[in-house]
């Protein structure tokens, strides 16, 4: 893993938004909410329509030449020196930590490193760079929070989501048992080892249900899709929501 330099946390005028393929297809409202949250802080958001997927599915499956081709096409579409904000710890981790290694020994490495150095996960960007102050306009609510493995271990996102939720006066966060344990998604893992993946998501969904919170929040589309699928299949009335959408819905002016 070649780690790029992280630039100083200056408040920028423009940012790129990297929606990610899962948000694009399954959670577009969450994606748009992330854009709104950034715009409200006075930042101009640019969403390149040429973006597709970070390439992680191919990379994690061992198909690095395919991942490299896709990675290159993404980097080329984010060429201005603006921060790239990503509503997913997993895709952010891929672009920040593994893009450079994909181009190890390649003349394109310099660009990959430069790009990787501009990657920010959304909640971290809101807290650390924009230092947002949220005003809660919603009804009292109880939620539980699932952290994504890659947000936690690749992007080092530990306190940021909690600190955002703590700004919402009428939101109570019920701790999830074994919060840092994987939900069992793992991309193609869920297909290659369906029974093990199922055992993992069963336990995660049961832990979510046991909190009694009617809303499950997460910052990653993959985890949400996985846990939501299990909750729905077992008839649990828990609403899975991306944290970007939750924050926007509760704080937007009405």
């Amino acid at each position: 893993m070649i780690s790029p330099e992280t630039p100083p946390d200056e408040r920028p005028a423009d940012v790129y938004y990297y929606g990610t393929c899962l948000v694009d297809l399954f959670y577009p409202e969450a994606g748009l909410s992330g854009i709104r949250l950034l715009e409200r802080e006075g930042v101009r958001v640019v969403y390149p329509q040429g973006q597709t997927c970070c390439g992680q599915p191919a990379y994690n499956s061992g198909y690095s030449s395919e991942a490299r081709a896709v990675a290159r096409s993404q980097i080329e579409r984010f060429s201005r020196p603006w921060p790239v904000v990503v509503p997913s710890g997993s895709c952010a981790g891929m672009m920040k930590h593994y893009y450079p290694s994909l181009f190890d020994g390649d003349p394109f490495l310099e660009r990959a490193l430069e790009f990787a150095g501009r990657i920010h996960e959304l909640t971290s960007f809101l807290v650390r760079v924009l230092r947002v102050r949220l005003v809660d306009r919603g009804e009292p609510a109880r939620v539980t929070w699932h952290t994504s493995c890659h947000a936690l271990r690749e992007m080092g996102i530990r306190d940021e989501p909690a600190s955002l939720l703590a700004q919402l006066e009428r939101v109570e966060v019920i701790p999830l048992a074994r919060e840092s344990e994987c939900c069992g998604f793992g991309g193609t893992f869920a297909v290659r080892h369906p029974e093990i993946s199922a055992a993992m998501v069963e336990d995660k969904a049961a832990a979510v249900a046991a909190t009694g919170a009617p809303t499950l929040l997460s910052g990653d589309g993959g985890c949400l899709l996985n846990i939501a699928g299990r909750l729905e299949a077992t008839g649990q009335r828990v609403r899975p929501v991306h944290i970007a959408q939750f924050l926007w819905e509760r704080t937007r002016a009405r």
């Binding site: 577009p28 409202e29 369906p194 029974e195 899709l225 699928g229 729905e232 299949a233």
Partner: peptide, 25 residues
């Protein structure tokens, strides 16, 4: 996937479409 989960349903419109119609640059 569906051995343990419900079938995933894509949203009605993609983020690409939502961003475009919302006028995001």
């Amino acid at each position: 996937w569906t051995s343990a989960r419900s079938t995933p349903r894509p949203a009605a419109r993609t983020l690409h479409e939502l961003a475009k119609s919302a006028g995001v640059a």
